[in-house]
Design a binder for these strands. Structure first.
Length: 798
RNA sequence: GGGAGCAUAGCUCAGCUGGUUAGAGCACUUGCCUUACAAGCAAGAGGCCAUAGGUUCGAGUCCUAUUGUUCCCACCA
């Protein structure tokens, strides 16, 4: 209830609204727009919370933080989600109708997402919200495409492409998931003259598509066959036998059939040796009807039938059970086929070196995550296919000349445009023809998601320079690179990679100076939380309800950056303990501030100076850690200070001075008031980024406004900020440590003797450095009260 | 097969550029109702810092190798 109250207060007072009039020290954050494909899970909360905590930190450092949220609603993930949710097939209804259903569904979920994000207290400026299917974003995405196409960085090509027969679309390498599957190795005899060459294959249904046989040039067993012809069983046609060093001698029989297309290797050989193409598997996942024996069957039945025929024909030597890893489509788990078709691609293979070197200009946190990017770029085998034969996406702004086939691009003033609904209003500049056919494909969702810096900066530019188009107004480049990107490590090969690629192409610049990469929340070691398993247990809405948003946030700031973690509801005990402690501690300090005047900023007692200096030190240390995105390590440091130094020691020391000015003196009490106020307000500020509701609630309820002149805790700055560095006196801090040791020894003694803490003792002898004696004498009354000692004596260490 | 991370108390983890008896929280044991907090306070027990070498006056920290573990990439014949 208190959290909701505080959230309403923030919203009403526009605490987190971006202020375009403050043009200095703008800090821009490229924050992940969640995909609208179901629920936000605990992993989102974990990673979003870490980013958000950092954003709050920057705000409290005095930066004008540009921190928008977006929703990635367009694209295949949303389509698949809608198909499942409504139990429909996109292909079964009209394009418009399906688009409409997707729009409605995504809109509905966006509202849910937004309300969940708000209930976490995430300080996005929701006025800056964007959606990737919106007109503005479609315009940016289409502009990007046209620019790339005009510079030949994007191109149209007929060639073998990765194909998902389930989703009925081409896909990109980044969308492949390796999956271990059970299969059989079938050993099949191919006749070569009067000899038999045995071949092992997992895909006998492709026998009719065999175009060649390869052996390794170092494989003495088979050299005699090279350049001869082999006869394909069942189909009885001849194929050449060639040698290629890429053939693994110890795999199968060491002789391999190359079909069009069984796998990526086939494509490689197809290109390398200009092999003929045989159209076996069609886009809907069935065999070409013209193929003998298996025409029109699906792949599985075709395989079974061929195996049966081979057996009957005594052409199956043996079959061997194996498990092998196949590429599946990440959205539906269906095995990927390779089928030639005409698609739009973005050039990657020619830019690998630049893509590798430019990564060095970005600061990676944690640094080792850069390796994943490097490994990915190094291993890319395909240019980025950006066409999708789908519906709920950004259309290609392209028409094809009916006469000569030339692709004609939309004029920029037409954008955003759907070529299906809008005629190309010009003549073909190649042949002059004025009849066109529209491109029906839409773009890969990443083709748009990879433009989040451009989207963010266009919106920022709109606010500041009143001009929305980043591609036209180069002023916007002043904000490029953005200050930071944040994300989890699973999308380095997609979001990170594609964004860097596009930024390189459009601006020849890195997209952001820093990238902060969070870990994953796992159910147990190595196992991602899936939607089916333990959905309720990890449902953020339920967790907020049972544990509060602040508790989840505090938990999210528990780890080192980039490290995967587990969610255990038991961990929430710690959090509750902490929140109660902060509440009680605040209550105590506030109860002694009734007559406190902020103008009397003076700590006269050394022990008060100690805690103020220690506070400053912890602020400085926390700043250093968080600047390196280590919000978890910073939190632990702050916890330690808050709990041990402030609560367990300092408060115990000054308690009586606060309660009994008659014994300790009015001035002395004021000094304690000031020190405890200073510490509390700074502790609240430190924790404001982690537990914004609780701290704000304390701030409001205790009417801190009268001291700090700000309606909200979150509009205050940390003592150490953009313009101010805190200082602290190590000598005084050392003295404070000595006092803590002293107290600890007395407590130990009492504990060993089973004495109550409040039982008095006759005398305490302090062993200290001579130069600190005056400090201790200054603290004597406090110590007598705290230790319940009757008198204090001294000895000195050298 | 290539690469990266991790290996410290029963559990979850800190230990920065090598420096005195290795830290925290949870759990455990004991004591304490202390004018904020028993969801608390105090004290205690618990570690050949994965293994083996090496560098160094000195290694949890640096180097080499090994083992275990997790992840990324590759592996579809």
């Amino acid at each position: 209830m208190a959290e909701k109250e505080v959230q309403d207060f923030w919203e009403k007072n526009k605490i987190y609204n971006f202020d375009p009039s403050r043009k200095k020290h703008i800090f821009t954050i490229d924050n992940p727009p969640p995909t609208i494909s179901g629920k936000l899970h605990i992993g989102h909360i974990f990673s979003f919370a870490q980013t958000e905590i950092f954003a709050r930190f920057k705000r409290m450092q005095g930066y004008n933080v540009y921190f928008p949220i977006g929703f990635d609603d367009n694209g295949l993930p949303s389509e698949r989600f809608v198909e499942k949710e409504l139990n429909i097939k996109a292909s079964a209804i009209s394009r418009d109708e399906f688009f409409e259903k997707c729009s409605t569904a995504t809109k509905h979920y966006e509202e849910k997402f937004e309300s969940l994000l708000k209930s976490m207290g995430f300080s996005y400026d929701f006025n800056l919200k964007y959606s990737t299917i919106s007109d503005d974003v479609r315009k940016i995405s289409q502009t990007s495409f046209i620019e790339l196409a005009e510079e030949s960085k994007a191109y149209l090509k007929e060639s073998p492409v990765l194909w998902c027969a389930e989703c009925q679309t081409s896909v990109a390498q980044a969308e492949l998931n390796p999956k271990e599957k059970d299969s059989y190795f079938y050993y099949i005899p191919f006749k070569v003259e009067n000899d038999i060459l045995e071949i092992a294959t997992t895909r006998p249904e492709l026998l009719c598509g065999v175009v060649c046989i390869f052996v390794n040039p170092k494989d003495k067993r088979y050299l005699k066959y090279v350049n001869k012809k082999a006869i394909v069983p069942l189909y009885n046609f001849e194929v050449p036998i060639l040698s290629d060093s890429e053939v693994c001698i110890d795999k199968g029989t060491g002789a391999v059939m190359c079909a069009t297309f069984g796998d990526a290797k086939d494509v490689e050989w197809f290109n390398k040796y200009s092999l003929p193409y045989k159209n076996v598997i069609l886009k809907h996942g069935r065999i070409n009807e013209n193929v003998n024996f298996i025409g029109s069957l699906n792949i599985k039945s075709a395989k079974n039938k061929i195996v049966k025929l081979l057996e009957e024909n005594k052409s199956l030597i043996k079959s061997e059970k194996i498990t092998h890893i196949v590429s599946t489509h990440e959205r539906c788990d269906r095995e990927i086929e390779i089928i030639p078709s005409k698609q739009w691609y973005v050039d990657i293979l020619n830019r690998k070196e630049k893509l590798l070197s430019i990564a060095n200009q970005i600061n990676w946190y944690p640094f080792s995550m850069k390796n994943r990017y490097i490994a990915w770029v190094n291993n890319i085998k395909w240019d980025w296919c950006i066409s999708r034969q789908r519906y709920f996406g950004v259309p290609f702004p392209v028409w094809y000349c009916l006469n000569c086939g030339k692709p004609c691009f939309a004029k920029k003033q037409w954008l955003p445009v759907d070529p299906i609904k809008f005629n190309y209003k010009d003549k073909c500049n190649k042949c002059g023809c004025s009849e066109f056919t529209p491109e029906k494909d839409v773009m890969d969702t990443w083709a748009t998601s990879s433009l989040t810096p451009q989207i963010n900066l266009s919106n920022l530019n709109k606010l500041i320079n009143n001009n929305c188009n980043i591609f036209e107004n180069k002023n916007v480049e002043n904000f490029l690179p953005m200050s930071m990107r944040s994300q989890a490590h699973d999308i380095i090969r997609t979001w990170t990679f594609y964004t860097i690629l596009k930024s390189l192409y459009h601006f020849d610049k890195i997209p952001w100076q820093n990238i902060m990469i969070c870990g994953f929340v796992l159910a147990k070691k190595g196992e991602k939380i899936s939607k089916s398993k333990g959905e309720l247990k990890f449902d953020p809405k339920t967790l907020i309800k049972t544990h509060t948003a602040d508790a989840l946030r505090y938990w999210a700031a528990n780890t080192k950056l980039g490290v995967d973690t587990f969610f255990d509801p038991n961990d929430m005990k710690d959090t509750k303990r902490f929140m109660t402690k902060l509440w009680n501690c605040s209550k105590f300090v506030i109860s002694h501030l009734e007559d406190f005047k902020i103008k009397e900023k003076k700590a006269t007692k050394f022990i008060d100076k100690f805690i103020i200096n220690a506070t400053n030190k912890i602020i400085s240390e926390a700043c250093n850690l968080i600047e390196n995105f280590e919000i978890g390590l910073a939190r632990h440091k702050i916890d330690d200070f808050f709990w041990k130094d402030f609560c367990d020691n300092y408060i115990e020391i000054v308690k009586e001075r606060l309660y009994q000015p008659k014994i300790h003196g009015e001035e002395e009490r004021k000094s304690a008031q000031y020190a405890s106020y200073y510490c509390l307000i700074n502790i609240l500020k430190l924790y404001a980024i982690y537990v914004p509701h609780l701290t704000e609630y304390i701030y409001i309820k205790a009417d801190f406004k009268k001291f700090e002149k700000s309606p909200s805790l979150h509009m205050l700055l940390w003592e150490e900020n953009l313009k101010n560095k805190v200082s602290y006196d190590e000598e005084i801090i050392f003295f404070g440590e000595e006092v803590k040791n002293l107290i600890s020894s007395v407590r130990k003694l009492k504990s060993q003797k089973n004495m109550s803490i409040k039982e008095s003792i006759d005398s305490v002898t302090i062993n200290c450095y001579k130069k600190h004696k005056s400090f201790f004498i200054d603290t004597e009354k406090d110590l007598i009260a705290c230790l319940k000692a009757k008198k204090i004596l001294y000895t000195f260490k050298s």
